[in-house]
Design a binder for these strands. Structure first.
Length: 576
DNA sequence: GCCGTTTTCGGCCCGACTGTTTTCAGTCG
C-alpha cells in the first residue's frame, strides 16, 4: 500500500474522530501522523510490517497497530465503527471552508444534514439560521462555497515556477517605490517549496498606505482589496492571491520569520520557546514571567534569542532542523554558485530548441566549465529520436567544438538513453562507449508493477556504460503521480554499482524529490543536479534543482557537479 | 494519541478573523 493511501486513511479517521467529538489532541495526532506518513520517503508498509513505524515522529504504538490493521484487512476497525455511525458523505461537508467538525456535527444532529446536497437544501430553505449561534450570513457563505466548488473545484496549488517570477516582479516594483524600505517574499515561495497556494510579501515603509496602494494599482492586479496601513491583498490576472503585510521596522524580523513558516516549523519553534519561558508570535518574543516583549528587526536575531543557529528558509519544514540548529549541526547547504556544470540537456538533434554551440555558449555565460548534451535515444517514441549514426556524428561534432574552443570549458557528448521494459538500453555498447556521459531514464511503459519497474532500473544500473539515472520516479507535479518504483532499492543498487543519480530541476518534475534526495545522500550516493533544459532559456531551471537539493539538506560535497569534470569522473564506476 | 534536558502523567503554539453575540466559540493559517 502506498504511503499516500495510508495517510489518507489516517486523515479520514482524524475527521471521523473530530465529528465524534474526540479531544482535539487526538485529532491533531492523527492529522500529524498523516502528514508524516505522506512525506516519508520510505515505505510505511514495510516499516509497519517490521513493527518499526514508531521510529517516525508522531507515530506511537496505537498508530503502528492501526496501520497493520489497515494493511491486513483494508480498513481500520475504529474507522469502520465510526463510519457505521456517520454517513461517509458527511466527511465532504467538513471540506466546506468555514464549516468545521463542530458545526457539521450540529448540522447533522439538528437538521439531518449528511451530504453536500442536504447542506445546499438546508441553506436554501433558510433552516441553518434556526440553529443557535448560526445566522443568515452562514447560509450565504455556504451557498457561495458550494457554487465555487461546483465551478472550479478546490483551490489548486501552483507550481513554484508559476509563482516565483510573479512574486519577485511584485517585490521589485514595491522596492522601487519611494515609500518602501524593505520588501521580502515570504511564505512557501521563500522556502522554495514545490508548489505554492499564494504569495506573501513582507515590507516596511515610510508611508505604508502609499506602498499598499502601489500594489493595488499594479498592472498584474485583477482584483484588489483596500490599501491600508497594515497592507493589502490582491489577486493577479492568473489567479494568484498576494498578501502584502507592512510592519514597523523594529518587528520586521518577527513578521518575516512568522510568515515564512512553515506551520510545522513555527509550531516546533514556539514549543521550544515555551520550554524556555518565552512566547513567540509575529509581534515579538514575550518573556512570560515578566511580560516583557522584545521585537527584532532582523530575522536571525529571532533564532538567536531561542538559542538557535540561523535556519535557512528551505529547511523550515519541521524535519529536524530545530534540533539540528540547537545542536549546531545544521548542514552547510549547497549554493547555486557551487555548480560547475549541467549534465542533462537537449538540443535540436532531439526535442531541444538550440544547437550544441548555442547551449555551450549559454552554459559558459553561466560560468560553467562543462555541459553534457544528452539528446533522446532511438526508441524514445515521441519522434525526433537520434539514430546511432546521428549520435556518432554528434560525438565528432563535440570533439570538433572542443578542438576549436580551447580553454577551461568542455562540451561533453552524451545521451539520455531510454531504459527499455526489460532494463536493457537502446544503443549498442559500442555506441555508448564513445560517449562521455550516459544518462539512463524511463520514458515508456510506466504501468508495470513496482517490482518489475525496480528490477528494470536496477538492470540499467548494472550496465557498465550507464553513469546516472534521470528523473527516477517519473512524476509530474500535480499532473502525474510517480510510478511505482522502490527508490530505496534503486539507491542501494546505485551505490553498489558506483553510479550517480539526478535531481531533475525541471520545475514540473523536481525528481528525485527532496525526501528521496535526502535518503540518497544519507546512503552516500552522489547526486547530480541537472536541468533537462530544452533550450538556452531553461538552463536557469538549475534554480529549482538547487532548491530541491537544499530542501534535502544537501551540502556542496553531496552534489557531484560542484566538482570539476575530472573530479566528478572519479565518482563513477566505469572506465572513462 | 504522542511525548519527555521541568514530566511515564499532564501537558500539548499563537493570533486574526468571522459571525454571532454583549464576551466568545469556531475556524483558519
Amino acid at each position: 500500500m502506498r504511503n499516500a493511501e495510508i495517510a489518507e486513511a489516517m486523515s479520514e479517521l482524524a475527521t471521523l474522530y473530530e465529528l465524534d467529538g474526540a479531544i482535539r489532541y487526538r485529532v491533531l495526532a492523527y492529522r500529524e501522523a498523516a502528514r508524516v506518513i505522506r512525506q516519508s520517503p520510505v515505505s510505511i508498509e514495510e516499516l509497519a510490517r517490521d513493527g518499526r513505524a514508531t521510529e517516525l515522529p508522531g507515530i506511537g504504538e496505537t498508530l503502528q497497530q492501526k496501520i497493520v490493521d489497515l494493511l491486513d484487512t483494508g480498513e481500520i476497525p475504529a474507522a469502520a465503527k465510526l463510519k457505521a455511525k456517520y454517513p461517509a458523505s458527511l466527511i465532504e461537508v467538513t471540506r466546506i471552508p468555514g464549516l468545521g467538525a463542530k458545526t457539521v456535527r450540529r448540522l447533522y444532529d439538528e437538521l439531518g444534514v449528511s451530504s453536500l446536497d442536504d447542506l445546499r437544501e438546508a441553506a436554501e430553505s433558510e433552516k441553518i439560521r434556526d440553529l443557535k449561534g448560526l445566522g443568515a450570513r452562514v447560509e450565504e457563505n455556504v451557498l457561495a462555497a458550494l457554487a465555487r466548488l461546483g465551478e472550479e473545484g478546490p483551490a489548486e496549488r501552483l507550481l513554484l515556477s508559476e509563482v516565483l517570477p510573479i512574486a519577485e516582479q511584485l517585490a521589485e516594483t514595491l522596492r522601487e517605490h519611494p515609500a518602501s524600505d524593505q520588501v521580502t517574499v515570504a511564505g512557501s515561495a521563500r522556502r522554495m517549496a514545490e508548489t505554492c497556494k499564494d504569495i506573501d510579501l513582507i515590507a516596511t515603509a515610510s508611508d505604508p498606505k502609499a506602498l499598499s496602494a502601489a500594489l493595488v494599482e499594479h498592472e498584474l492586479a485583477a482584483q484588489a482589496g483596500t490599501a491600508g496601513d497594515a497592507g493589502t491583498r490582491i489577486t493577479t490576472f492568473n489567479g494568484v492571491s498576494v498578501d502584502l503585510r507592512i510592519v514597523a521596522p523594529d518587528a520586521y524580523g518577527n513578521l518575516l520569520q512568522h510568515f515564512t513558516g512553515s506551520a510545522k516549523h513555527n509550531v516546533e519553534l514556539r514549543e521550544r520557546a515555551v520550554r524556555m519561558g518565552l512566547s513567540v508570535s509575529e509581534h515579538g518574543i514575550t518573556e512570560v514571567e515578566s511580560g516583557d516583549v522584545v521585537r527584532y528587526a532582523d530575522e536571525a536575531e529571532v533564532y538567536e534569542r531561542l538559542g538557535l543557529a540561523y535556519i535557512e528558509p528551505e529547511l523550515r519544514e519541521g524535519n529536524g532542523e530545530i534540533a539540528a540548529a540547537a545542536a549546531g549541526e545544521l548542514p552547510g547547504l549547497v549554493e547555486i554558485t557551487d555548480i560547475r556544470g549541467d549534465l542533462h540537456c537537449h538540443t535540436t538533434l532531439s526535442d531541444g530548441r538550440n544547437t550544441p554551440e548555442e547551449m555551450a555558449a549559454a552554459a559558459r555565460a553561466r560560468g560553467y566549465s562543462y555541459l553534457a548534451v544528452t539528446d533522446h535515444s532511438a526508441s524514445h517514441g515521441f519522434g525526433n529520436h537520434v539514430t546511432p549514426e546521428a549520435l556518432l556524428e554528434r560525438v565528432e561534432e563535440v570533439a570538433a567544438y572542443n578542438a576549436s574552443n580551447p580553454g577551461r570549458f568542455r562540451l561533453l557528448a552524451g545521451s539520455e538513453v531510454n531504459i527499455l521494459p526489460d532494463g536493457s538500453l537502446d544503443y549498442e555498447p559500442a555506441v555508448l562507449q564513445r560517449l562521455d556521459w550516459v544518462m539512463a531514464s524511463v520514458h515508456t511503459s510506466f504501468r508495470i508493477s513496482e517490482k518489475r519497474m525496480t528490477e528494470r532500473v536496477i538492470e540499467a544500473l548494472r550496465n557498465p556504460h550507464v553513469d546516472c539515472i534521470g528523473h527516477l520516479t517519473g512524476r509530474l507535479i500535480g499532473k502525474r503521480e510517480p510510478y511505482g518504483v522502490d527508490v530505496g532499492a534503486v539507491i542501494d543498487a546505485a551505490v553498489q554499482n558506483r553510479k550517480l543519480i539526478e535531481i531533475n530541476g525541471n520545475p514540473n518534475r523536481r525528481d528525485l524529490n527532496e525526501g528521496y534526495a535526502r535518503l540518497a545522500a544519507q546512503a552516500g550516493l552522489p547526486i547530480v543536479v541537472n536541468t533537462d533544459a530544452q533550450g538556452v532559456d531553461t538552463l536557469s531551471n538549475m534554480t529549482y534543482g538547487i532548491a530541491t537539493a537544499r530542501r534535502a539538506w544537501l551540502t556542496k560535497r553531496d552534489v557531484a557537479n560542484t566538482r570539476s569534470w575530472r573530479e566528478l569522473l572519479k565518482l563513477r564506476g566505469r572506465r572513462s
